[in-house]
């Protein structure tokens, strides 16, 4: 489903040049659950952002369902992203001014679903995430665990083929964290491809494969026995 070849990402500021990703070759099959690990600043998030088409690489190739997308324009990337990719962030990234319902509804709005369809889908996913009773609340009124459930709900409401999760349990206590990991595992069991960046070895245990990143390189790949 996802493939990168000689992926390089260099950040340049006025005086400093930082190589965040250096020659990353990676392949992720459909239905896989992959965890990316590594120390802070090793390029995990950069890789995730590039895989999620939020950012362009400096050089190299990315294949999304066999199409080369590295040189896609912003518009093309947006189009591809909103139909296929869901995001879960460490800090949830919910919009404070919108209610739980409205936050989850947002991606459907951008996909131009009708109001009736949106309602149906949002309620469905909120029920599934067991957060429907909070649909009128605003993010500030929820606990961290509840907020992340909303964020996951928002990521899956469009039924994406790929979910990218950036330290989804980083801001949560262990109980809530486990809860969110169970949700992701369930989604994966239903066929969604998941790529997750994490510091937590426990969380990474849930994945099929763990990729270790160091200074922008892939150092090891370990495949979990299924």
């Amino acid at each position: 489903m996802l493939k990168t070849k000689k992926l390089i990402k260099i950040f340049r500021s006025d005086e400093i040049e930082t190589t965040a990703l250096n020659n990353v070759n990676l392949e992720i099959a459909e239905g896989e659950f992959v965890a990316i690990m590594g120390p802070s600043g090793c390029g995990k998030s950069t890789l995730l952002n590039i895989l999620g088409l939020l950012d362009n690489p400096t050089s190299g190739e990315i294949y999304f369902n066999d199409s080369e997308v590295a040189n896609y324009s912003e518009r093309q990337r947006t189009k591809l992203r909103k139909a296929n990719v869901g995001f879960v962030f460490q800090s949830f990234n919910l919009i404070d001014e919108l209610s739980v319902y409205e936050n989850v509804e947002l991606p459907l709005l951008y996909l131009k679903y009708s109001a009736a369809e949106r309602k149906k889908k949002v309620l469905e996913v909120l029920e599934y995430m067991q957060i429907a009773h909070r649909q009128k609340h605003f993010p500030q009124q929820l606990s961290g665990g509840q907020q992340q459930r909303v964020a996951v709900a928002r990521a899956v409401v469009t039924n994406p083929k790929l979910i990218l999760a950036d330290e989804p349990t980083g801001n949560l206590d262990s109980v809530n964290g486990e809860d969110v990991m169970d949700l992701l595992t369930q989604l994966n069991n239903q066929g969604t491809t998941i790529v997750m960046v994490t510091h937590s070895a426990t969380d990474a245990e849930k994945a099929h494969r763990i990729i270790q990143l160091f200074d922008g390189h892939i150092v090891t790949e370990s495949i979990k026995r299924v």
Binding site: E74, R75, K82, F87, N93, L94, I95, L106, Y110
Partner: peptide, 16 residues
């Protein structure tokens, strides 16, 4: 800035 970032990640186009 952040809100727009979220919306863009979720698929909002520039005209939107």
């Amino acid at each position: 800035t952040k809100e727009i970032g979220i919306r863009k990640a979720l698929g909002a186009s520039i005209p939107e």
